[in-house]
Design a protein around this nucleic acid. Structure first.
Lengths: 172, 172
DNA sequence: GTAGTGTTACTCGGATAAATATTGTCCGAGTGACATCGG
DNA sequence: CCGATGTCACTCGGACAATATTTATCCGAGTAACACTAC
């Protein structure tokens, strides 16, 4: 029951990407530096988010990552599933029919009650994650966070974002 | 986000232990054989359950394991926490202040909103687990399972349980 | 026949290897920007 | 001065090690039953 460490990084990056203007992008390298992570490792997770259609990637200079859809349409569940995989945490190994006194397979047509209970709990977990949109995270961040952090984050985004439409970045 | 494989075994064992008479015990060896698991490995998890006060262990011949309290007072959450550990799956590494442009620590007094959201979801998960008692599992098992399985399980328990009060087991 | 005693076999408990998943790193493919060259 | 072109640097993407966690195993400590002996 240990959630991968990359989930935290993924959500932070997604929240930061929600702050870029228009369809501009933010390089993974900049985000890694912003959060003190090894760039190569963060790329691994950003790649997973891209494969899950949560982010879009733009190659080449002035490339980077961008949200694949508005922050209102991205939930924490999307991000968690993209990083941790879509299959449930509890996988029933059907050990009830693995024992030495196994019965005829026809006896095991009904699902294992333990599996049902565990999956029910996990469904509650996913429901709670699905109920939190990325835009909620951003709103809560801008409202209930020390304004120094908000200002610093906005400044960082403004300085590192790469506009995509016919404009080059200004340096320094 | 992968739940340990021992959780399934632990719940099955606990449900089986709920079927022993009085304060009789069931050896871990028998349960391992019943579910086709390696005995030495199952002992590890049973030990964890014992340390968490979910089970009680009786050493010596005619010893074994027994529920530490009635099945109505044991929830799936107790078992899961005993096996997987009590700390939450999502651990906030506070990467927001690990970056290169870290601010004064006084800016980070308010908790990270992402951490709050994740912990809220996990609380929902634990609430669902806490809402399912071991007695519910047993009831659902006896009512909504093929009676061949129920009969086989009861027979196995009756044959392998060790009465604890001044009576020795009858063999064969 | 009954009580005491020593042995034995069975139990759980902790410490120790193997396997797997996660974490971390590196190198290669692709692309747009920049400088250079020609008109 | 303007446009085309070649080079370059920066990006993401996938393949490759190191570490941590989980899984599996073995051996030792403890205890109650059993057999034996003495009374």
């Amino acid at each position: 029951m240990k959630l991968g460490d990359g989930v935290e990084a993924a959500i932070h990056c997604a929240a930061m990407l929600a702050g870029v203007d228009g369809d501009g992008t933010l390089p993974g390298n900049a985000m890694a530096e912003a959060f003190g992570l090894s760039p190569s490792y963060l790329l691994k997770h950003l790649k997973a988010l891209t494969a899950a259609k949560v982010l879009e990637s733009v190659p080449g200079p002035s490339g980077g990552y961008r949200l694949a859809r508005p922050a209102e349409q991205i939930t924490l569940l999307d991000i968690v599933l993209a990083i941790e995989g879509r299959e449930p945490a509890f996988r029933c190994g059907e050990i009830r029919q693995k024992g030495s006194h196994a019965l005829d397979p026809s006896a095991y047509v009904k699902p294992c009650g333990i599996n049902v209970a565990m999956l029910k709990a996990e469904r509650a977990y996913r429901m709670a994650l699905a109920g939190t949109r990325l835009s909620d995270i951003v709103t809560d961040f801008t409202e209930n966070t020390d304004q120094r952090i908000v200002a610093a984050s906005c400044a960082f985004v403004a300085q590192n974002q790469r506009p995509q439409n016919s404009r080059t970045r200004m340096k320094g």
